[in-house]
Design a binder for these strands. Structure first.
Lengths: 193, 193
DNA sequence: CGCGGGTTTGATGATGCTCAAGCCCGGTGG
DNA sequence: CCACCGGGCTTGAGCATCATCAAACCCGCG
């Protein structure tokens, strides 16, 4: 149940097998089924969730009902509403399982204990955050300079698994385009080939 | 010369005055003049730069010459090309001073030493990265759901100083719109009032 | 078999881009 | 001190991309 998280940590910082073993007890294993929400907007986000298995999305909902997919998370990735988790304000995002999932949940107090106990873990999270920043910066770059088609092609190239695993409408939302536009783009691409 | 950085750290983690004093020596003070570049795309980014005084922007340039402003940084903020800095790959961003600046530069080895020596500093950077992620996530949200006018109004509300200090064309680029569109929006807004 | 959500297809229209020209203003040199 | 650049901002006209609204279609599931 903890293979992925151990690997996620070991690939970023040096850590002994014993310590790795110790870390496991900070996590709360949780299985959730497809369509289940692990966070509702308005609640306080209690956990950072690490994905051992499965696939999820985080998204916001505007007053008019429009959804905006912020992030997808699959095996080996974290997902959360960081602003809510760290500052204990109401979450603006929902998080929904798009497949049956096996998660490892980390509460704020568990995280604090853990990073206090293991400096390498503090480092792990810093590195993780840095990596996340880089991907977010790239996304902003794409959002500004690419056409709808270019954004889709880029996603196909960089994260083909997202396209395989996510319903199309969520991919459209993630890219900031409408489902109709995405459908037309796909049609066009398939006829070109 | 180090007031801002000390305050930036103290506002996020507990640290003694002595330790704070010790930290100063890790930074390289540097003055740069308006228009000067502290990073050119293609180079390896050697520093994270903390702004004690002044105002800068980071931006990418496409093959066709189009610029895209990624970030503005003013007093109390950090700016860098993190992907290049941490992974020692070629930078994709340029960083240019938009005003005369007083910076504190931090090399990778200085950072590593510092976080090894002071666990609170490791924590400081983790928190910093988290905060940055939250702002980037918000920006992606805006980019997807807001019109050009809404994005501008939001920026006016959240970062009025950027609007006061940056040339308009860079603001447009930051928002992902053309200078012409921004000009028209401003005209419209002023006539409405 | 029929329902329903998701995807596709079509028609129309708005937002914002492109290209082009003019304007404003600060800086430079005669 | 004034004339003349030149960059940035403004204004205008036409157009492309993409959103919206609406309807049909597809397919899995009860």
């Amino acid at each position: 149940m903890h293979e992925q998280i151990i690997q996620s940590i070991k690939s970023r910082v040096e850590i002994s097998d014993q310590d790795a073993e110790m870390l496991k007890r900070y996590f709360i294993p949780k299985k959730v089924r497809k369509r289940q929400y692990i966070l509702n907007a308005g609640d306080i986000c209690q956990y950072m969730a690490f994905v051992e298995k499965g696939f999820l999305r985080s998204f916001s909902v505007e007053e008019n009902g429009n959804e905006h997919v912020i992030q997808f998370a699959m095996e080996g990735r974290w997902i959360s509403d960081l602003a809510s988790f760290f500052s204990e304000v109401n979450a603006v995002y929902n998080i929904e399982a798009l497949e049956d999932c096996e998660l490892l949940l980390l509460t704020k107090s568990a995280l604090d204990e853990m990073v206090g106990q293991f400096p390498q873990v503090e480092r792990y999270f810093r590195i993780l955050m840095q990596e996340h920043i880089i991907t977010l910066e790239n996304r902003i770059g794409y959002a500004h300079s690419y056409t709808a088609e270019e954004k889709y092609l880029k996603l196909m190239k960089v994260h083909p698994t997202i396209i395989q695993r996510s319903p199309q409408q969520y991919i459209a939302s993630y890219l900031g385009i409408t489902p109709e536009t995405l459908s037309r783009i796909r049609k066009q691409l398939s006829s070109k080939k």
